[in-house]
Structures are given as structure tokens and as C-alpha cells.
Simulated scan of single mutants.
Amino acid sequence: MGRLTSIDVCSGAGGLALGLERAGFDPVLLLDHKPIACETLRRNRPSWNTFQMDLLDFDPKKHQEAYRVDLLSAGLPRVKSAATTKRVETGLELRLLKATVHLARTIQPLVLLIENVPELVAAPELEEAREYIQSELGHLGYGFQWFVINAADFGVPQDRKQGVLVALKDRFCDRFLVPAPTVTRHVTVGEALLPSMSARGWSDAEEWAGQADRVAPTLVGGSDNRGGADLGLTGTKRAWAQIGINGAALSDEVPGPDGTQESDTSGSPLKKLTVEQSAVLQSFPDDWIFAGKKTARYRQIGHASPPPVGEALGRAIAEALRR
């Protein structure tokens, strides 16, 4: 069997689609409702068939290429539970989850892959959502595997737990194996960012990298409805501070020879990340272009699925289909 085919919805900056491409999947169609995300996809992969459209409005009957694909993948917006927000999310996120299931029911790919928060896998508050998925797809002959993986186990220098659903047509279900870690030792922030931190000759870059001796906290993209880019809530910013990073904002440049970042007027001795460094922490390739201004670029990165995770999942799915 040669390369496989896929449809990717809620594609964002393309992290999941890029990983799946590396694993042997060529997308026949990608979908995202944000113009900036679609611009990013088109800049990096002009050959991809990218549509700017809300998943809730997508009609596969107008896209015959959507039928007879091997994989439907979705890096959906974070479904929130009481464990993360003190309330159960019953709005847009769950509607998109159900729309993805409806699309799978319509086009019936061999495999459905949904990547989301770990709570989707087991949180009692989201049991109804899980039951809906299994009820809708079960009678169509899909078997299910729910699991949580950590991007750090796949070489991403970040503690990023991801909840995953892989639903396969019954004849393939027993062949799927949850991907095993691809690294025996986690990549630290210092290892990942030393080349960029020292790029302008910062004399203390090696010392900084030595104390940044752990994986990063989870990058978060934040909401489009609030101000500029930062690295998360107060507790997360404290975790960043422990590895020498000021999580209050991003910098326009890496440190100079004396450690100065000209755009940083905070007076803090901690260093600010650049957008490009946040992309490194998500394990995007250096030549992946993110459209938009600084905040828009960072949010695309923070919302993305790290490509190495998509690749590991894609390889496991491809192996199940090819056995």
C-alpha cells in the first residue's frame, strides 16, 4: 500500500496535518474557519486543498473528494470540563465535536482521529460526550480506543498531555497499537532553545540553558477575545519563571551579547520567549511560516498539536491499515 489519504478539520496552523503528512497521509481537504490559519496553511503547503469554512457549515456533498478517504482527523478546540474551568462546556467546543462525528458518519473513513484535552478521555463531566460519540459511530462498525499521551514522550520539549480518540472500522480495530514513546529521555527547554538563545552572542546562554533543565509547561494559545500573548495563568507563569522565562509577554528578539532584549521594558532579569522559540517548543520545523502579527502567530502555535505527536499517531494508524 502506498500513501494514504486524509481530511483534516479544525486544522489551525497545521501541526496535526504536518505530522500526518510525515507519517504517509496526504490530505485531500483541510478546513478551518480562521482566515489567518488558512493563510498559514497555504503559505507552507500551496498544494494542499485548504478551505476557509466553519465546520458547522461544511457540506461534504459539495466535495466529492471527501468520500472514500482513509482518515478523518480533527484537532478540535479544547473541550473544557469542571476539572479545568469549574464548569462543564456545553457550547461551541462540544458542537464542533458532534459535527466531527456527524462528518465521520457521513463519509465513513476507515479511521477517525480526534485530539483534544485529556479530560475528554475519562472525566465524569464529559461522559455524555463520549457516549454520544460511541453511540453514533458504534452501529456503523467502528471500534474505539481512548487514551492520553504526553508530547514530551515524543521528543517535544514540553509537558503537553493530549487526549486522543482513535475509532477504526472493526476489521482494523484490533490491529491498532497506541504509539510508544519515541525518546528515552525528555528534551529540556535549555537543550531546545540554546541555539536561539546564543544566536546573538549572549555570554550567559550556556548557563541559562543549564538551569532550564526540564520540559516546558504546556504552551497555551489563549483566547482571541482578550489582550496580547502571554504564557498562561499565574501558576503557569511561576513554572516558567523557575526555568528563567518571563511568561508575561513575548519578546521581538533573543538576548544580545549582554543578555538585553531591546523590546523588553519590564526590568525583569528573566528572559522572554520569541514567537519563533515558542514554535521550537512545539517542535515545528524552522521553515514553517506562521501568518499574521506577533500575537496571532503565537496563538496559532499555542493552539496547535505538535507535529511529532501527529506523526506518531499517523504511523500507528497507517500500520493498522497496512497489516
Rank of each mutant, 00 (worst) to 15 (best):
L4F: 08
C10Y: 10
D26H: 15
V28R: 15
P35W: 01
R42E: 07
R43L: 12
R45P: 00
T50A: 10
L56S: 02
K62L: 12
L71Q: 13
L72I: 03
P77H: 10
S81E: 05
L92C: 06
L92T: 11
R95Q: 13
L96H: 02
P109L: 01
V121G: 00
E131D: 13
V148Y: 02
V148E: 09
D153H: 07
D159A: 13
K161W: 12
Q162L: 10
Q162A: 11
L165W: 04
L168M: 08
F176D: 08
P179C: 10
V183D: 14
H186T: 13
T188F: 14
L194I: 02
D204P: 05
A205V: 01
G210Q: 15
T218G: 13
V220H: 14
N225R: 14
N225E: 14
G228L: 03
A229G: 01
L231M: 10
G232A: 09
T234F: 15
T234I: 04
G235D: 15
A248H: 14
S251F: 06
D252P: 00
D258C: 04
T260E: 12
Q277R: 09
V280T: 10
H303D: 04
P306V: 08
P306D: 10
R315H: 14
A316S: 08
A318E: 11
A318T: 02
R322N: 09
